[in-house]
Amino acid sequence: MDAAMAPGPVPEKRPRAPKKSGAGEVSMRWRLAVASRVLAAVIGGYLLASLASVCLAYFLPLLFQSSRAEAAVLSMTLSFLFYLPAVLWCFACRTALRAWLGLLVPSAVLGAVYGCARWLV
């Protein structure tokens, strides 16, 4: 995308989204980083979207006058609005590790919130 960008440093250490090295070759390391981001987007994103919809489906009937079927429908409908930013994040963040963390941490939080609400409260 940007041969004109900062030359020099090893591709993965540059504070940018995945890019090739200036010479125009694609290193194995870069390929693995991209693959990692793709996996994070697909799996991590799905996990985050599912957990978001599970939380919505749980809390909506408590907050509004909706039956659990209606809440499930609304939560599924909105789930893709969580999936999309998750995917964008995986490719916008600086490293592949951040891609995973950025999805797994919120997922864990949502899971914990749901878990506590359902089984502890």
Binding site: Y58, A71, M76
Partner: peptide
């Protein structure tokens, strides 16, 4: 595009159905 996701949502995103039912 968004509606095409909604059409199959019970198949692709069933988590909330499973946790509720």
């Amino acid at each position: 595009t968004y509606s095409s996701l909604v059409i199959f949502m019970t198949m692709v995103m069933p988590a909330s159905i499973l946790t509720t039912y």
